[in-house]
């Protein structure tokens, strides 16, 4: 079943730059998809449209049954509750502990303290940070901070996890640790879309790979068929 359906999407920014040309793409539920391509090829624009940080200029984007292009500003939260997003710079609250950073995502839904506690502990256990719940972000390594961000993104049980260069700031070993966490999450049924520059990771993971070039899909590699090609 398609979780994401993109039809004839075009994105032109206000300054006249066209970032995406007439794009068509389907992503199945439970998929793990890499989006790769040179800087400025439209990767970020594509995923920003998925979580409605940007609106397509024309065309249709359906994410989990929601027509993203038609979503009003005040209703964006309905889409965001179905999606988790992870960034290169983690975007953690510096003055909140690991526990608070993750619990934050649940508190807006009005769950009880006990419900929040059990969910937060469960998800921190999954990313391997159960023993650091009282630490502040600046007391953690980059890999650990990214794991907190992942925990926060998945604590609601989203159908889709969008990762924008999550390993961009991390060394090779730490990057692989993060990839293992993501693989784990994917196995539990969450669809993952990840933008990256790291060819090694893409090769090792053997997933579906979409190569973008100048706002168009240049190639769509089936699972495990991607070999070392220029990004």
């Amino acid at each position: 079943m398609d979780l994401i359906r993109i039809r004839n999407v075009k994105k032109v920014y206000k300054n006249g730059v066209t970032a995406i040309y007439d794009m068509n793409l389907d992503i199945q539920k439970g998929d793990f998809v890499f989006i790769i391509g040179a800087t400025g090829c439209g990767k970020s624009t594509l995923i920003k449209m998925l979580y409605r940080e940007e609106k397509p200029t024309s065309g249709k984007i359906i994410v989990g049954g929601i027509d993203v292009a038609k979503l009003r500003n005040g209703k964006v939260y309905k889409l965001r509750r179905k999606i988790g997003v992870v960034f290169q710079d983690f975007k953690l609250l510096p003055r909140a502990t690991v526990y608070e950073n993750v619990a934050f995502a649940l508190e807006v839904f009005g769950l009880t303290k006990a419900e929040i506690h059990s969910k937060v502990i469960k998800v921190l256990d999954l990313v391997g940070l159960k023993n650091k719940i009282k630490n502040y972000p600046n007391q953690l390594s980059g890999g650990e901070q990214q794991r907190v961000a992942i925990a926060r993104a998945i604590v609601n049980g989203p159908k889709l996890l969008i990762c924008d260069e999550p390993t961009g700031n991390l060394d090779e070993n730490t990057s692989m640790e993060i990839m293992n966490v993501l693989e784990e999450i994917n196995k539990l049924g969450t669809t993952i879309i990840m933008v990256t520059h790291d060819k090694e990771i893409v090769k090792k993971m053997k997933k579906r790979v979409i190569l973008l070039d100048a706002g168009r899909i240049l190639k769509d590699y089936e699972k495990g068929t991607y070999k070392d090609e220029s990004i």
Binding site: G74, Y77, K91, V108, F109, R152
Partner: peptide
Amino acid sequence: EIMRLVGASNLN
């Protein structure tokens, strides 16, 4: 920004 990302409504 983070509040928006995790699905907090504007009122929230």
